[in-house]
Design a protein around this nucleic acid. Structure first.
Length: 201
DNA sequence: ATCAAGATTACCT
DNA sequence: GGTAATCTTGATA
């Protein structure tokens, strides 16, 4: 795992759609006390506040979305439905209001800890293993990510991403996004074809 | 002050 | 497939 190189500032400073597609196959790592939690990103969605009515940043800066207006490479964590946290990778230059929502992860390391965080037990059934982090709220629960992590710099050592696989274009599925009511036709959801840890077909 | 909506999930029938 | 859970924020008065 530590063989892979950490993604640097340059990776995040690019266009949100480009970064979204390239995030597929990368590893998200969270230092968790003396342990490591990690997983491969298998599904994402892009949000671009300049044209996208579904983006939190479409109507300008507020207390809630200020991190999303910062430079690329920060983590934007928000709370929704009174229940769940979701985490996003901020992209582009400061002021843009662009970010990529991480929607599903295939667990790699620290699976017992994730199992504890999600189900408060360790011996999971096959279906529970697949359900560990196959949705934005589930990821944050499994990785124990919450409002404390809003604004964390991903080039730091607490939460970061590693190069892993580069997913070829032919293996990336493109669809409309899930769970939104505005700008519903933008084809900005991307996932790895035939991966079983996708949130939804 | 009040209020509606929300990048979801789990559990029900 | 339907819906309750649960609370923060941002808009409007």
């Amino acid at each position: 795992m530590t063989r892979q190189k950490k993604l640097s500032q340059n990776f995040y400073s690019r266009n949100v759609i480009t970064v979204a597609k390239e995030l597929l196959g990368k590893t998200i790592v969270r230092k968790y006390g003396s342990s490591i939690l990690s997983g491969m990103i298998v599904e994402v969605e892009a949000y671009d506040g300049s044209v996208d009515r579904a983006a939190h940043t479409f109507n300008g800066k507020t207390k809630r979305n200020e991190v999303m207006f910062e430079q690329g490479g920060l983590l934007y964590v928000y709370f929704t439905y009174g229940v769940h946290f979701c985490c996003n990778v901020v992209t582009g230059k400061a002021g843009l209001g662009n970010a990529v929502l991480i929607r599903a992860v295939e667990p790699l390391e620290g699976i017992d800890i994730m199992a504890k965080n999600r189900f408060n037990k360790t011996d999971l059934t096959e279906s529970e293993k697949i359900n560990l982090a196959n949705g934005p709220g589930k990821i944050c629960r499994a990785f124990n990510i919450d409002r404390r992590h809003n604004g964390v710099n991903l080039t730091g050592s607490e939460i970061f991403l590693l190069y892993n696989k580069k997913i070829p274009k032919s293996d990336i599925a493109v669809t409309t996004r899930i769970g939104i009511k505005k700008s519903v036709d933008l084809p900005w959801r991307f996932y790895i074809k035939n991966n079983k840890f996708i949130s939804k077909k």
